[in-house]
């Protein structure tokens, strides 16, 4: 794989994570538990999709041949998506949505702190902007973890259930794919083995405060980063890609 192909694939992987989670968060639009939180989570969706756009623009420039951010984002099939399994998990309820967001935010924040030093200028510029947004996302989701975990009996049991269920999708974030390994060796990617301990210590800190037990199960799912997705991604793409496929090149 040439350096350019490697950078292209790495950029897509970064973009796909934020795109798919952004799409998931946007499903809350007009369905939020309360007006103010409906706006909060759709704001987060917009931040994530905005970050993905910048990355897709960069990727489409690298790919050339008339590709645009839209064609790169919308005209690939399930196997071509390189997002982690965590971000495609369904919203289920508010506790699941918050737990998924929190696990991703801790990863996403530390990832972009590392990417700010990327040897690729476009990646580091996007990282600097993303850090500001993710700082807020992490604060927001951490507070919700604590509010629900250390809340009523019902909110605590729902949050514990969400954490137990989603835990097996967190390990994949730190199992470097070949693309991620090579991207780190080349200097433009992040070192996931350095991010993992930061993730675990922040997650422990917040879960402790939320009085939520950290699951002890060692089993971890994997596959998303290499294109082996859960059944959920197909449905997300059907929703997300319908417009571009039915009306190619549609514009507002």
């Amino acid at each position: 794989m040439s350096d350019r192909e490697l950078l292209y694939n790495y950029t897509l992987h970064l973009a796909d994570n934020s795109m798919i989670l952004g799409q998931r968060c946007s499903e809350w639009c007009a369905h939020g538990p309360i007006l103010e939180q409906d706006i909060a989570i759709t704001n987060i969706a917009l931040d994530l999709i905005g970050e993905a756009r910048s990355l897709y623009q960069f990727a489409s420039e690298m790919r050339g041949e008339g590709h645009t951010e839209d064609s790169v984002a919308f005209l690939r099939d399930v196997l071509d998506y390189k997002n982690a399994l965590l971000v495609e998990q369904p919203n289920t309820d508010w506790a699941y949505t918050i737990a998924r967001q929190f696990f991703y935010d801790v990863y996403h924040f530390n990832l972009h702190l590392a990417l700010a030093n990327s040897s690729e200028k476009r990646i580091s510029e996007i990282a600097l902007k993303t850090i500001k947004e993710t700082t807020y996302h992490l604060k927001w989701s951490s507070e919700w973890m604590i509010r629900l975990g250390d809340g009523t009996d019902i909110s605590k049991s729902k949050m514990q259930d969400a954490v137990n269920h989603l835990w097996e999708y967190t390990g994949e974030l730190f199992q470097a794919s070949d693309i991620e390994k090579m991207a780190f060796e080349k200097g433009f990617g992040a070192d996931l083995s350095a991010i993992a301990p930061l993730w675990h210590s922040k997650v422990k800190e917040v879960l402790d405060e939320a009085t939520i037990a950290i699951p002890q199960s060692a089993y971890q799912q994997k596959g998303g980063k290499t294109g082996l997705h859960s059944e959920h991604l197909g449905y997300i793409l059907a929703d997300m890609q319908f417009l571009q496929r039915a009306y190619p090149g549609a514009e507002w």
Partner: peptide, 20 residues
Amino acid sequence: SLHAADVQMAIENARDVYTR
């Protein structure tokens, strides 16, 4: 005005609702 469970949430909701 807006609804919020606590002061921290009130500031964040205000940020999301009124400073977009």
